[in-house]
Amino acid sequence: MSSSGASPRCARPLRRVVAGLCIAVLVAAGLAPVDPASAQSGGSGVVVIANGWSAPDAGVAAPLAGRLDGVMLYASTESLGSATVSALGKLVPSRVVLVGGAAALSAEVEAEVKSLLPGATVERLSGADRYDTAARAASVELAVPQNRPVILANGWSPSDVGTAAPLAARLGGSVLYAARDVLGAPAAEALEQFAPSQVIIVGGTGALSGDIDTALAELLPDVPTQRFAGTDRIDTAARAALYGNAPTGRPVVIADGWSTPDVGVAAPLAAALGGSALFSYEGAHESLSHALDQLVPSEVVLVGNSVLTDGLAEDLGRLPLDTPQTRITGADRIEIASEAALLAHSRILLSRYDIQSDPAEDRSKVLRLAATRINGELLDVSEFAGRDVLVWFWSPF
């Protein structure tokens, strides 16, 4: 469930999330926003599904979804789950990518997807292990070299994977995994094949030792390498969020840094919103406060049931009073991922069809505007009567 408003500690009234930023319109009988390339399947967009209990698979799926201009959903090994089934019915994707082998997402899950979406292309991206799976995802993301970076993380460190995924999604790059002291053949082959613009190592030498730096220098002598190593995972994530031309005045997505599934959800959502991802902590944290001050967020999206700590509430209380805040919660990680995916999809549609809106516009005007951009003609809202129309409003207005 997504909701909007300030935390109790902030002592602010409930605020509306900008209507035009949080609406998607799907209309049956030819009004669905279908890309020409996917018109044959009757759907639109890409959905990447990962096991919500597998940090390395979620770490691969998050930047992949961002690179494919899609969204990410979670499933368990044996079932999609009711929330994911519901989200797929609303998203109606033309392409679904399952990340991980049958041990992560079983054949039953794949069959369930195909039954729900008979017109969609369903494919599986998996390797011999987490290193190979990450390399195979990179081959999809970096297939057309466009001066893209590669983010390298220890595949056994959920916090570093959680930092690498949103950074890769924001920079349009890819995540590769290595062991502490060994780069490994899958990562080395991917790096050599696609010659990235730079390699960013996430984590200190306790996570990826100096042997990794040496291996990269020998493999790619002309490619610059940089390392992000903070005092802890909150600081490392903050450094990553501020890296390069960090987008100021853009949305910021915040997740509990110790909740691996929520961190995985935050990455593709931040990419869809065109912003950055940060981690929260149980108490006040100087790095998080500094990052929020520097990023000057246009809005804040809080992901998960445990994200809003006292320290974060104090930080949010220092933001301008008109900064919208949205909270995404759910009964479990699958429901939280589904809610985030629907929000991300609405933003992708608005960007794709160049839909602009103002909070003061009423629902009818926004619906007409969406119909105009999607179908090239102005439709009166009364024409929707009696049709199968689904409208997602993410906050009261």
Score class of each variant (00 low, 15 high):
52 G>I: 09
260 T>R: 13
254 I>M: 03
338 S>N: 05
123 E>F: 05
56 P>D: 09
330 G>T: 06
66 G>Y: 01
379 L>P: 00
181 D>L: 02
270 A>T: 01
123 E>S: 15
358 D>K: 00
157 S>V: 10
79 S>T: 14
392 W>S: 09
102 A>L: 07
221 P>H: 13
243 Y>Q: 12
173 G>W: 10
245 N>M: 11
80 L>M: 12
165 A>F: 10
44 S>M: 07
68 L>A: 14
311 G>R: 02
353 Y>M: 05
226 Q>G: 03
352 R>H: 11
278 L>Y: 03
59 G>R: 06
267 A>H: 04
281 Y>H: 14
259 S>G: 01
365 K>F: 09
143 A>V: 09
271 A>I: 01
83 A>K: 11
86 S>E: 13
223 V>L: 06
315 D>P: 05
14 L>S: 08
384 F>N: 03
306 S>E: 13
211 D>I: 04
323 T>R: 10
198 Q>K: 13
391 V>F: 09
363 R>D: 00
101 G>F: 11
219 L>T: 12
18 V>G: 12
388 D>F: 13
192 E>S: 15
129 D>V: 13
33 P>H: 07
143 A>N: 02
367 L>R: 06
129 D>C: 14
110 E>T: 03
230 G>R: 04
46 V>Y: 03
69 D>F: 06
391 V>I: 15
307 V>Y: 02
294 Q>K: 10
247 P>W: 06
51 N>W: 09
384 F>G: 14
146 Q>V: 01
346 S>N: 09
213 D>E: 14
316 L>C: 11
363 R>C: 05
165 A>N: 06
7 S>T: 14
394 W>G: 11
361 E>L: 04
78 E>K: 09
212 I>M: 11
69 D>K: 12
317 G>M: 08
79 S>F: 06
225 T>Q: 14
267 A>T: 03
106 S>L: 13
250 R>F: 12
99 V>N: 04
324 P>E: 13
133 T>V: 10
142 L>K: 02
230 G>M: 02
367 L>Y: 09
249 G>Y: 05
312 L>M: 00
355 I>V: 15
7 S>I: 08
104 A>F: 07
160 D>K: 07
23 I>T: 13
256 D>K: 00
237 A>K: 04
46 V>S: 02
250 R>K: 14
389 V>W: 05
94 S>N: 10
105 L>E: 05
264 G>K: 00
325 Q>V: 15
228 F>Q: 09
119 G>V: 02
32 A>W: 04
33 P>L: 01
323 T>D: 12
251 P>M: 03
202 V>W: 11
97 V>T: 14
62 A>F: 09
120 A>L: 10
9 R>H: 04
230 G>F: 07
380 D>S: 11
374 I>R: 05
397 F>A: 08
138 A>G: 15
256 D>H: 04
263 V>P: 01
224 P>F: 08
360 A>K: 07
298 S>C: 03
142 L>R: 03
353 Y>F: 15
343 L>W: 01
54 S>A: 15
351 S>R: 15
270 A>E: 01
163 T>R: 06
89 G>K: 04
258 W>Q: 13
222 D>L: 12
272 A>D: 06
301 V>C: 04
57 D>N: 15
122 V>R: 02
143 A>I: 09
219 L>F: 07
80 L>T: 04
191 L>D: 08
187 A>C: 08
166 P>E: 10
169 A>M: 01
